Simulated assay, not measured.
Amino acid sequence: MAALHARLCAALLVLLAAAAPAWAVTCEDTRVDGNRYTICRVDLDADDLRLFLSDADGTPYGHFSTLDRALARQGEQLAFAMNAGMYHEDRAPVGHYIEDGVERMRVIAGPGPGNFGLVPNGVLCLRPGRADVFDTSRYLTERPRCTHATQSGPMLVIDGKLHPRFLPDSTSRNIRNGVGTSADGRTAWFAISNHGVTFYDFARLFRDTLGVPNALFLDGSISRLYAPMLDRDDSGRRMGPIVGVVAPRAGD
């Protein structure tokens, strides 16, 4: 009987391992100071986090579903995704953009119109095994060798401090999404508000709740999330850059 029990336990462990997802990213809905958010944690030691803009023909993916179908042809799938920065009407990124080591858009330095130009803005830089958010001036000084990078703005948290233009009594509320990275670069936190919030409250989420030293605003009303573990696949108008965790497709 003992031998049979051991074989059954071993078989169960094999089945559980086969059923377990091939990624570490997790997403959960939460409430902070009366505001509702969905927060996703990406483990850079285990997760393959990449940026995506367009297919081999130069056609922007635009939607999570289009990107997932393209990955399926390579035996891969999206485990998580979010829009990854501001873009023009043709879906071209407004700011700096690198994909698979190829720069597609230069760094935009200095102030400008809109949220993007509300300096300091910043860059999400992905390298093997780590992710970092840099404010743009530091990025230009350090010149990290990013495999993937996307520029957006404004920064939400800069070296543990909130962006100086954010006001605690602001009445400007909008859907917002952003990303923050741990000091060691091994964890990236992505968050999206599930109703309108102020920049001040959104930045405090990253600094005070998630505890990240640097965080970057990605976009506002067009913000969307793909989180299959929550049965969430936001639709809407076509996107520009997309950030996502890629995993082997189930059964492959």
Results as ranks from 00 to 15, higher is better:
residue 176 R to L: 14
residue 189 W to Q: 09
residue 218 L to Q: 02
residue 177 N to W: 08
residue 178 G to N: 06
residue 207 R to T: 02
residue 195 H to G: 14
residue 170 S to F: 13
residue 210 L to N: 04
residue 170 S to Y: 09
residue 190 F to E: 06
residue 173 R to E: 15
residue 214 N to T: 03
residue 168 P to D: 12
residue 185 G to Y: 05
residue 195 H to S: 15
residue 184 D to F: 11
residue 180 G to P: 11
residue 198 T to Y: 08
residue 209 T to N: 08
residue 212 V to M: 09
residue 204 R to D: 02
residue 220 G to R: 00
residue 217 F to N: 00
residue 168 P to W: 12
residue 175 I to F: 14
residue 172 S to N: 14
residue 216 L to K: 00
residue 174 N to Q: 14
residue 217 F to S: 00
residue 196 G to H: 08
residue 179 V to S: 03
residue 214 N to A: 03
residue 211 G to Q: 05
residue 175 I to S: 09
residue 205 L to P: 02
residue 187 T to C: 10
residue 217 F to Q: 00
residue 201 D to I: 01
residue 202 F to D: 01
residue 187 T to A: 12
residue 190 F to K: 04
residue 196 G to F: 05
residue 216 L to V: 05
residue 209 T to D: 10
residue 171 T to I: 14
residue 189 W to V: 09
residue 198 T to K: 05
residue 213 P to G: 12
residue 176 R to D: 07
residue 191 A to G: 07
residue 198 T to Q: 09
residue 195 H to K: 12
residue 171 T to D: 15
residue 192 I to E: 02
residue 210 L to S: 05
residue 191 A to T: 03
residue 170 S to K: 11
residue 192 I to C: 06
residue 171 T to M: 14
residue 173 R to I: 12
residue 205 L to Y: 03
residue 220 G to P: 01
residue 194 N to W: 06
residue 189 W to N: 05
residue 210 L to W: 05
residue 194 N to C: 11
residue 181 T to K: 04
residue 177 N to L: 10
residue 212 V to W: 02
residue 216 L to D: 01
residue 202 F to I: 05
residue 182 S to E: 08
residue 221 S to C: 08
residue 219 D to M: 04
residue 211 G to K: 07
residue 177 N to S: 14
residue 213 P to N: 12
